[in-house]
Design a protein around this nucleic acid. Structure first.
Lengths: 242, 242
DNA sequence: CAAGCATCGTGTAATTTGTACACAATCCCT
DNA sequence: AGGGATTGTGTACAAATTACACGATGCTTG
């Protein structure tokens, strides 16, 4: 048997459940939006306006609409709340402990996203929003700390094989910036020579024959992501559509 | 802002939505239960009893109850439908295309599970159930083919680092059986000597100093999973609880 | 304008890991 | 007794990972 509403009416053990009980659970999406600034990984948080969570920070999220795909909902949330479009978004997992939401039963599906803090200026529509360092995440609303940790774990895995990390960098970047970013995400130091060798091996980058010009030390060469490499899901979808 | 019901009432763009609209989406779980028999990976399917899917196979699933954790629901489903308890269950992802369910809006969260077909005799409560080979999965109900593929993909990754695969084998097994199982899951042939070397390196197994006695050829040594290694999530949870 | 600072750019040797590959021994079956 | 299927075992080569140092460059400061 599969999960469905009509079948439900027939099974013995649930016969006393009335139709309205199928719809006592609301479903939402939450977006874990990572950014990178000042050699630190950040996450975009918003002040919760639930009384239960007064003054505490939470993820951007919303209920899923009845006429939108689950995987479309986080794109809408991001567009509505920040003006961002054309971003990388990846489903990470669903969180549905009974009491995770203080004012009702809400199951949420978490997505993570990577955006370049400088390039995308956020058009915040309401509430107080803040790029929060990942180091001191205290007192988040709901189970949002756990959700962020799950997303970070996924991110760490994903940056090893897929060129998603470039969503966090400007078009042109130096290898130092790239290494700083890897280090911020992984939380460890990397050997510079080995790092450069590994990146070279992946063949993701084009050498731009340009130099940094805004650093207080010897400038490094600038690179960009090879054209044709999909750095986000939209590109992938577009490719499949061909 | 976060996903919640009370906030929803305040935002401009959704002001015309009445309270009942929050609960127009039902949420289910579906279990992809893998087994291993005859050198083939199998998945447990049940005849759908939706008219729309007459005669087609589907996963075991059910709606999530309002008073149960999302991650508990698949354990309940498995217990109720097959009598199975104490199994490995892992959340893989959520599927929520608008029209995935013909008789209503249902978002489902998929879990995969690994069980030993011989050890666990299923106590099927209703409907027709079948261990289906993964090779000819045609005409499944809903988006269940896609769900199974996602779960298989996850399984393939997970067996490389974690000793979950032993859920599919009897207590005592030979290296040949183990290799056959890896091959069935990965869909490729492995070199015997290299395979044995790799397994030895993982240090998962205890040599039992016993031999197979039911094979029509030279018998191999029997091994078992080292005691103390967690082959399923229950063990992990138990460990954390300490 | 010299000294100091931070970073750039680069290669090699040692170790570990992955891959390809063959043969004699054992047990069952007939 | 012979054929069939499988066991158990090691080595050589290739590839990937790790550890590690020095001279050059551009900016800053005093």
């Amino acid at each position: 048997m599969t999960a469905d509403t009509s079948k439900k009416l027939k099974t013995a053990e649930v016969e006393k459940i009335s139709h309205i009980d199928y719809f006592k659970i609301a479903i939402s999406v939450d977006c874990v939006i990572f950014g990178f600034e000042n050699k630190e990984l950040r996450v975009l948080l918003i002040k919760s306006d639930l009384e239960e969570f007064a003054g505490r920070w939470s993820l951007l999220g919303d209920l899923v609409k009845v006429d939108e795909d689950l995987d479309s909902a986080p794109y809408r949330v991001l567009r509505q709340r920040t003006g961002l479009d054309d971003v990388f978004l990846q489903q990470v997992g669903s969180f549905g402990a009974i009491n995770r939401h203080p004012s009702g039963r809400v199951i949420t599906t978490a997505y993570y996203s990577l955006i370049n803090i400088r390039n995308h200026k956020l058009e915040i529509t309401d509430n107080e929003v803040h790029w929060h360092s990942l180091k001191n995440l205290k007192d988040l609303a709901f189970d949002h700390k756990k959700i962020i940790e799950s997303c970070l774990e996924r991110l760490r895995i994903q940056i090893m094989d897929e060129p998603v990390i470039f969503n966090l960098l400007p078009e042109k970047f130096s290898l130092r910036e790239l290494q700083d970013l890897y280090q911020a995400i992984l939380g460890i130091k990397l050997d510079r020579r080995n790092f450069r060798k590994k990146i070279a091996l992946k063949n993701w980058l084009d050498d731009l024959d340009e130099m940094e010009d805004d650093v207080p030390h010897r400038p490094g060469k600038l690179y960009k992501l090879k054209t044709g490499l999909k750095k986000n899901k939209l590109d992938e979808v577009a490719e499949k559509a061909k």
